[in-house]
Design a protein around this nucleic acid. Structure first.
Lengths: 361, 361
DNA sequence: TTGACAACCGAAAGCGGTTTCGGATAGCGT
DNA sequence: ACGCTATCCGAAACCGCTTTCGGTTGTCAA
């Protein structure tokens, strides 16, 4: 393979130095705010660098300084290759924050036949990244186990079962679902069903715990058939709803682990001729824009995904910058979800006027 | 700033060479399949590298070889910071393909006060990327203009007005909307309205062209008030639908520029008491999973976003690899969207049995 | 005037690889 | 036994920038 010579095209520090009649070292120090360069020399160098459009090669700079200002993010491998909207927003926030800190974001996928840890390991070993962000944590997450002993800074969006010794930012899922149940109870509901996600996923587990705790605290008993786990897509939600509707004493409200599940549930209910919002209340979690577009609007616990992404980015960069200081504290941040009230949850058996079929004009 | 010395921790080629009793050059050539290294030496080096867990520093390698095997992707700056699902899937496909080719994907956002070209320029000048993928092209796209003269390989997902001299992969938007109109006409519709997007965006413009061409070809006239442009979110879709419903002679079908718009339209129709699928047909574009979850299911023109991402990745890597060959051909690929039939489009004035309200059990 | 001390800058050694070039060794024919 | 090639490997330059270290100046007090 022929060496790619960029010839005399690109502006190197050598040319800049020659142009200025200075040594490379002096130019470098001038541009990097070393105190031992005369003010006017600094100004002169800055000016020339600007005019000639000089930008130091990050590759060379990294090699010389022994740092890579790059954060890795490995897309969770899911079937169907769908990045859910929540992840997408986090990614956006993360990219924004990193751009502001002059760090890079390296996104990788997991090729078939490999696993995420493998991919992360390669990225670290080959020196491509100097830190990681992991999202969608499992209760026992091999990625976290791996990163713990890899000595690269990282922050998790979401906790794991044992989460004392690393940095994370999470939503208080349990409290959120306690709040959701309390809200339903406040509306008059006593019979509340639950469509839960994959219990391996930490957030699903915690939301489930919130549901269990709050129904118990309110003295609502969970009839057999009220709880469904492993609902991860709209289709599963639909089937679970059909099961629920078959119950002799069916619930008046359904709490859903995510907006996607809630939307699937609403669809299923509508299809079965149930009037959502009056005959059956539904609450989701995420605050997706889509929740506003469906009919009725989805009442949901919202989390500010973009902000989460930004904060996670801030933390991981901070962590990486003080990587030397021994036994540094880990940021462990818990944010609260907020209730967004729309039309899908109301007092039981209330018929809404808005749902009456009206004329065209 | 203290130099970060990785001490004796990391495995460098120097240590590997010393361990083997060979020179660094020999080890390097052995690992890089140079023909002038004895078979058994190669084997010995490979084995030792494996055992000692040696991975060459990509930074050093890049500096020495003068290449960066990295593709940049700048997230389109939109208000609301929402990566739409279509982009997310493309990103996933792109990341997958690049991972398979051992290229990196560098994702950046555009900080406030800057523009996309600026960000791309910095990435190029500082040598962080060796190629670009741009998505969501505008009819006149400054990013393309910039990349054209920047001499870095790139491929666009989506075309622009003048698109002869660069590589792109696009969906045949015009044909897709011709097909959609023909499908509706085949169902018996004659009065077809259109909810279009931002006409600056190339795909929106082409879909609009398809709508215009096909309605004309079929002799359907477009009544005043049938065409709405600039519909970019669910809210706008809702308002446009209300306008349409006010028309004295209102249409029997609405063709929507994206699934998101279609879903907003369906919501608005439902809210107005119109039975979607019988009283009014709706067709979208994208093939989002969400289209399956709503009620009725969304009939739509589907594009395989993940595959698009992969193919775009394949092309850009190929392009970058043969960057030397002069005046090389550009891949220019047009894929077709396919019609996914669900419940939202039917012959006009047909009442579907499935829409009848049924009992609970 | 001289010495001491700042203030500035140049020289040079890395960072961890790659690649060219030439030398040593071995194998071969005669 | 000799020379000649092919084969294989080591030496060294280099990629572009950073950073240490030491050497020149200039300034000011004694």
């Amino acid at each position: 393979m022929p060496r790619v010579r960029k010839q005399n095209e690109t502006m190197s520090i050598a040319r800049l130095a020659k142009y200025l009649g200075l040594s490379e070292g002096t130019v470098s120090r001038a541009l990097n705010n070393y105190p031992d360069i005369a003010e006017k020399t600094v100004a002169r160098v800055r000016k020339a660098a600007d005019e000639l459009g000089y930008r130091p090669s990050t590759t060379a700079r990294r090699l010389a300084r022994g740092v890579v200002e790059t954060i890795g993010f490995v897309l969770p491998a899911r079937d169907g290759h769908q990045i859910d909207p929540f992840l997408a927003e986090i990614l956006d926030g993360l990219a924004t924050e990193l751009a502001l800190s002059d760090w890079d974001l390296l996104v990788s996928a997991v090729p078939d036949g490999h696993d995420e840890v493998e991919v992360m390991d390669r990225l670290i070993q080959s020196g491509k990244v100097g830190g990681f962000v992991v999202a969608r944590t499992k209760r026992h997450d091999p990625r976290i186990d791996f990163l713990r002993k890899s000595h690269v800074p990282f922050v998790a969006q979401g906790r794991t079962e044992n989460c004392d010794d690393y940095a994370w930012l999470d939503i208080d899922n349990e409290k959120a679902f306690v709040d959701a149940v309390n809200y339903l109870v406040g509306l008059g509901h006593r019979k509340i069903a639950y469509l839960g996600g994959d219990p391996e996923l930490n957030y699903a587990w915690q939301r489930r715990a919130g549901y269990l705790a709050a129904t118990k605290a309110n003295g609502c008993d969970i009839a057999p058939g009220y709880m469904h786990d492993g609902i991860t897509n709209e289709l599963a939600a639909r089937e679970a709803v059909l099961e629920i509707l078959k119950l002799p004493d069916h619930p008046t409200a359904i709490l859903c682990v995510t907006d996607a599940v809630a939307i699937g549930a609403i669809h299923a209910l509508a299809h079965a001729g149930i009037d959502v919002g009056s005959e059956m209340s539904v609450i989701g979690f995420d605050g997706l824009p889509m929740g506003e577009a469906i009919h009725p609007g989805l009442t949901t616990m919202s989390q500010a995904s973009y902000q989460i992404g930004r904060e996670v980015g801030r933390i991981v960069v901070a962590q990486a910058n003080k990587a030397n200081s021994p036994a540094s504290e880990f940021s462990q941040i818990l944010w609260e979800a907020s209730l967004t009230v729309r039309g899908s949850a109301n007092p039981p058996a209330l018929k809404l006027a808005a749902n009456a079929k009206g004329g065209i004009s």
